[in-house]
Every structure is written in C-alpha cells, then in structure tokens.
Amino acid sequence: MRKLLLPFCLLILIFIISCNPKEQNQTNEIETKDIDKKDSIIAVEVDSAQIPKSILYHGNLKKAIQWKDEVGENLVILSESGYHRNEKFKHEFDDSADFELFAYHFSLDKNNLQIWKMYDFVADCPVDIEAEFYSQFPIITDLDKNGIAEVWIMYKVGCHGDVSPVNLKLIMYEGNKKYAMRGENQVKVGANEYIGGEYKLDKSFDSAPNIFKDYAIQLWKKNVYKN
C-alpha cells in the first residue's frame, strides 16, 4: 500500500508545481495590462460649444483637444486669424496682409488657468501667405510615462511669391516646459529634385529623454513634405 501511495503523492506534487507558473504568468499579464491602461492618455476633440464660456482666445477656432492626466483635466485650443490686416503691425505695402496663429493650454481643474500660450504670425505680406497648423495636430502623448501629457503642435509660416520653402516649426510642451524644432518644409522643384527640409533642435532637447528627440524627428520626417 505504501508503494502505491508514494508515486501517487509525487504525481500530485508535480501537478501543483506545473500549475503555479501558469497562474503567476496570468497575474503578471493582468497587472501589465492595468499599468498600460493607467499610463495611456486618451484625448478627444471638442467643438466650440463644449469650450467653457469663461475661456477667451483670439482668432477662429481651428481645433480643440481635451484630455485628463495626472495634473487633471486639460484643454488645448488652436486658432487662426485668417487673412486680415492688423494695425498693430507696421505696413510698408498698401495691399499687404497679415496672418496670426494662436495656441493655448488651459487647466480646467484650476478655474481654467492658462498654462501657456503660443503665438506666431506673418506680417505685411504683399504676395502669398503660407500659414497654417497641420491638421493632425495637436498630438497628445505620454512618451516618458510620467503621467503628464506632452502636447505636439506643427505649423508653417511664410510669405513668398514663388515655389520655395517656408518656415516649419514643431513645438512640444510638457507642462509649461517648451521644446522646439525649427527649419523649413520641403518642396518639389523638379521631377526628382527637392529643396528645403533642414531642421535644428533647440537645446532643450539636450536634457530631455531621448524618446522626445526620436519622436520629434519622426514627426518631422513624416510631415516635412506636404503638397
């Protein structure tokens, strides 16, 4: 009887040992999924009716994005003046035009406190103005997984009467910390010939996580050439 009992006990022990790693793996998978879900930031586009009336911004609404992170509820607004003539600028030409771009970040949990404002413009342009936010921006990320969103904005500004590059800028904020990448867009001037596309990273990227720089270069390469 003892001879039969010993192999049976060994079989039970082997079965228990073989089951435990599987159960542990399942637990780890569940925990990993929960962490990924916690670290992800979901941003949604809102329309003008969903923007609190106490929030003031210049220009015409281009896009508004809202999200929640470790800081709280956030709202970023992109707006443009369109072609107009702003008398605050000095005008050399009677038929010239101006174009202004605005971006704002508000904290909705802190009485709609303005965290930062970005402003750029083309002034006194007597020929063609190229000024616009790229439509897929702002992009909201959390690349360093610290629970605080990074806000990416890309736009071009220029005044020219020919086929030539204009200023292209990629701006990123994490909180009120600004990172910038500046250069020119790329244009096609022949069958297989392009000009422009160069860029320079601000020194702020030197002390930033490498993933910020890598993602900035990725965004630049993806958007530097637009027909």
Rank of each mutant, 00 (worst) to 15 (best):
A131E: 02
A131C: 10
A131H: 00
E132A: 09
F133V: 10
F133P: 08
F133W: 13
Y134L: 15
Y134R: 09
Y134H: 10
S135C: 00
S135N: 13
S135K: 15
S135R: 14
Q136I: 05
Q136P: 00
Q136C: 00
Q136D: 15
Q136G: 00
P138H: 04
P138A: 08
I139P: 03
I139K: 13
I140V: 15
I140K: 08
I140M: 10
T141E: 14
T141I: 03
D144S: 05
D144N: 15
D144P: 04
N146H: 03
N146Y: 03
G147N: 10
G147K: 10
I148H: 05
I148L: 04
E150T: 08
E150V: 04
E150A: 10
E150P: 09
E150I: 06
V151T: 15
V151P: 01
W152T: 07
W152M: 06
I153Q: 13
M154N: 06
Y155S: 03
Y155Q: 08
K156D: 07
K156H: 08
V157D: 05
V157P: 00
C159Q: 06
D162Y: 03
S164D: 11
P165Q: 08
V166T: 14
N167Q: 14
N167A: 14
L168A: 12
L168N: 09
K169L: 08
K169N: 11
L170N: 06
L170M: 10
I171P: 00
I171A: 13
